[in-house]
Simulated scan of single mutants.
Amino acid sequence: MHPTIYKIATETMWQAAEAEGRFTGAPIDIADGYIHFSTGEQAIETVRLHFAGQEGLVLVAVDAGALGDKLVFEPSRGGALFPHLYAPLPLSAVKWVKPLPLGPDGAHVFPDLAL
């Protein structure tokens, strides 16, 4: 079984990807030359550091095994290996998309993640 990796995106950005049939990345992804993903263990911290308090987010679960050799795990925050996709994300690799709402404490409420 292949691991699941996660992308945090705005609802608007994800709706555009669905209309286009693929996700080419957020502005930071395009600037860096690859699409940033997180493992289940990394996703909560990624949201806390880069999306704190932001409404209108979705969490996209992706089958890492469907991405082939364009997916590379590279050192990033604290030396941890993060998944980076050097190609557009085909929607066929997406397992599910769920809202990432803010809870009463202002932190995002996550669905159960495959760790």
Rank of each mutant, 00 (worst) to 15 (best):
I8Y: 02
A9L: 06
A9C: 05
A9Y: 02
A9K: 00
T10G: 14
E11A: 06
E11H: 06
T12N: 11
T12M: 07
T12R: 12
M13F: 03
M13P: 00
W14L: 04
W14N: 03
Q15Y: 01
Q15W: 02
Q15G: 01
A16M: 03
A17Y: 00
E18A: 09
E18L: 03
A19E: 04
A19H: 10
E20D: 12
R22D: 07
R22E: 01
F23H: 11
G25H: 04
P27F: 04
I28Y: 07
D29P: 10
I30Q: 13
A31Y: 11
A31M: 11
D32C: 13
D32H: 11
G33Q: 08
Y34I: 06
I35M: 08
H36T: 09
H36Y: 13
H36W: 14
H36P: 02
H36K: 11
H36D: 08
F37Q: 04
F37M: 12
F37E: 01
F37Y: 12
F37D: 06
S38Y: 05
S38I: 06
S38D: 15
S38G: 11
T39K: 06
E41H: 14
Q42I: 01
Q42F: 05
I44G: 01
E45N: 13
E45F: 07
T46L: 10
T46W: 07
V47R: 12
R48F: 00
R48M: 01
R48I: 02
L49C: 09
H50V: 00
F51T: 00
A52F: 10
G53K: 11
Q54L: 08
E55P: 04
E55S: 08
G56I: 07
G56S: 03
G56V: 02
L57H: 08
L57G: 05
V58N: 02
L59S: 03
V60F: 10
V60Y: 08
V62N: 01
V62C: 09
V62R: 03
V62F: 04
D63G: 04
A64V: 14
A64G: 02
G65I: 06
A66T: 01
A66P: 04
A66S: 15
A66Y: 03
A66Q: 14
A66C: 02
L67P: 01
L67E: 13
L67V: 10
L67I: 06
G68S: 07
D69H: 09
K70F: 07
L71C: 04
V72H: 09
F73I: 01
F73K: 14
F73R: 15
E74H: 09
E74P: 01
E74M: 15
E74V: 06
P75A: 08
P75E: 15
R77Q: 10
G79C: 11
G79L: 12
G79A: 09
A80Q: 15
A80E: 12
A80K: 15
L81N: 14
L81P: 05
F82G: 05
P83A: 15
P83I: 07
H84V: 08
H84E: 04
H84K: 15
H84M: 12
L85N: 13
Y86D: 10
Y86Q: 12
Y86F: 14
A87E: 13
A87M: 13
L89Y: 06
L89M: 06
P90A: 11
P90M: 07
L91N: 11
A93I: 09
A93W: 00
V94Y: 11
W96C: 03
W96G: 11
W96N: 08
W96L: 05
V97M: 11
V97F: 08
V97A: 02
K98F: 02
P99C: 08
P99V: 02
P99A: 10
